[in-house]
Design a protein around this nucleic acid. Structure first.
Lengths: 110, 110
DNA sequence: AGCTCATTTGGTGCTTTTGCCAAATATGCC
DNA sequence: GGCATATTTGGCAAAAGCACCAAATGAGCT
């Protein structure tokens, strides 16, 4: 019987850290936007509608998780997606949500 | 310029709830195990090595997110994965982790 | 009913996360 | 240098997450 310990535990902790980095609506929004094109922090802050320091911290978190990279040019810092597969998370989450709502409708109908 | 509000915001909040449900090493372990075969709570609690109440709460969280389903039979409650695609999360997380460690090695080498 | 096993629920303390503010840092321009 | 803009960092309070314990619920058995 497999147990949650040793190497398995360490691997899952590392994976959970990456997944946790995406487990926030603002950070999902940032990932979706940065997938299209690079953006500087002040642009992103305006889109998100939060304090720039807040958005900066979200971006730092995504960077530490290896999901985005930053590029300082002049006064500005531009962020972009490092790995496109980060969007797979959202598509899988969508699939689960759709399946859930489908089941809800069936439950009501029956 | 797209903003984080209205329908977009609600969609991302829903997605983040699903992703957050997977953002914990214990819950990733449960998903991996339940992908192979159904298990009852006491088996899973032994594998995880935590209090059964703790594991039960993790499972309830996964159920609320639509990731697992439960099936009461006799005294026991068996859980199983509802959607196999939940494993896509872990493979994507792995890809990001591998890419990150690859970059670290390159940085050391240069 | 009384007993036992399996599970869930409620409560508590502790840690982490989050968002804002203010202060610090960095860059370009005059 | 002095100033304005862009970003990060540190601090703080509110909120959420987590793990354990104890109590409650439920199902089968005698």
């Amino acid at each position: 019987m497999r147990k949650l310990e040793g190497q398995t535990k360490r691997r899952l902790e590392a994976q959970a850290r990456v997944i946790k980095a995406l487990a926030h609506p603002t950070r999902l929004f940032l990932v979706e936007e940065l997938c299209k094109e690079e953006r500087c922090v002040c642009e992103l802050a305006e889109m998100v509608g939060s304090d720039m320091s807040t958005v900066s911290k979200h971006l730092a978190l995504l960077r530490q998780a290896g999901i985005v990279k930053d590029d300082k040019r002049g006064k500005k810092v531009f962020y972009r997606l490092r790995m496109g597969c980060a969007l797979d998370f959202t598509s899988c989450a969508s699939a689960i949500l759709e399946e859930t709502s489908r089941r809800r409708l069936e439950a009501i109908a029956s």
